[in-house]
């Protein structure tokens, strides 16, 4: 309970700050749109033929947005040394981690929810299904967990913009693969067994593993 109280306090503070400044969500939304537009030029296909690569584009865009959003979420903490404030408080490091993670998760889900219909139009995705929603939720939990952890390291260095993607992408490869494959299946009209028997369990295992490991070692990241 102590853990949850601390985590929710931190997360709510981040939400409140975001409602004030809107800097994370606004910049990520614009960036997401630009990514899709650039993809279109890069692939230069005739209309409609983007369908086979659409799930891939969706997740590459989401992954880039995730890195951007999480970097911002932590940079704000360093503005006036807010991270020291969190570490001084008698809340456990796990709670601080979970709070930052829940905040980033909320931002990313909002961004993804806004961008999904836009992508559906621009990439000509056939349908939107509940299965896709579940995939997005689980994959975003994975992104937010690993991303929050590594941005905790990256923001303390001079080269934070480059260090976060270098740490983040190799580790979340399983999430990206599972998300792309599961989305492709979920968007098809055919049977979706692969989503349930293979990709969702993989996402759940990944999320569970990192939700256990990351809070455990997060304390070491901020000991100066």
């Amino acid at each position: 309970m102590e853990l949850l109280r601390g985590a929710l306090t931190v997360a709510w503070k981040d939400v409140r700050l975001e409602l004030r400044s809107r800097e994370v969500i606004a910049s990520a939304l614009v960036f997401g749109l630009i990514v899709v537009v650039v993809f279109n030029f890069g692939l230069n296909r005739s209309p409609g033929s983007l369908e086979p690569v659409a799930p891939g584009l969706l997740w590459v865009a989401y992954a880039f947005i995730g890195v951007l959003a999480m970097n911002r979420a932590f940079t704000r903490e360093l503005e006036n040394g807010g991270m020291d404030g969190l570490l001084l408080a008698p809340v456990s490091r796990d709670a601080v981690f979970l709070g930052k993670m829940l905040g980033s998760l909320a931002f990313m889900l909002v961004i993804e929810a806004i961008l999904l219909p836009v992508f559906a139009v621009m990439l000509d995705l056939p349908t939107l299904s509940p299965a896709l929603g579940l995939v997005i939720l689980l994959a975003t939990v994975g992104f937010a967990t690993v991303g929050t952890f590594f941005s905790g390291i990256a923001v303390q260095t001079r080269s934070r913009e480059i260090l976060l993607p270098i740490l983040f992408f190799p580790v979340v490869v399983p999430v990206i693969i599972a998300a792309v494959e599961a989305s492709a299946l979920a968007l098809q009209s055919g049977p979706m067994t692969g989503v349930w028997t293979r990709w969702l369990p993989l996402l759940i295992v990944f999320d569970a593993l990192y939700l256990v490991i990351c809070p455990w070692i997060f304390g070491y990241v901020f000991e100066g």
């Binding site: 190799p170 580790v171 490869v173 399983p174 693969i177 599972a178 494959e181 293979r198 990709w199 993989l202 295992v205 990944f206 593993l209």
Partner: peptide
């Protein structure tokens, strides 16, 4: 992470 990466890539 390595075993998870391996299985995901295999699938």
């Amino acid at each position: 992470d390595v075993p998870i990466v391996y299985y995901s890539v295999q699938w």
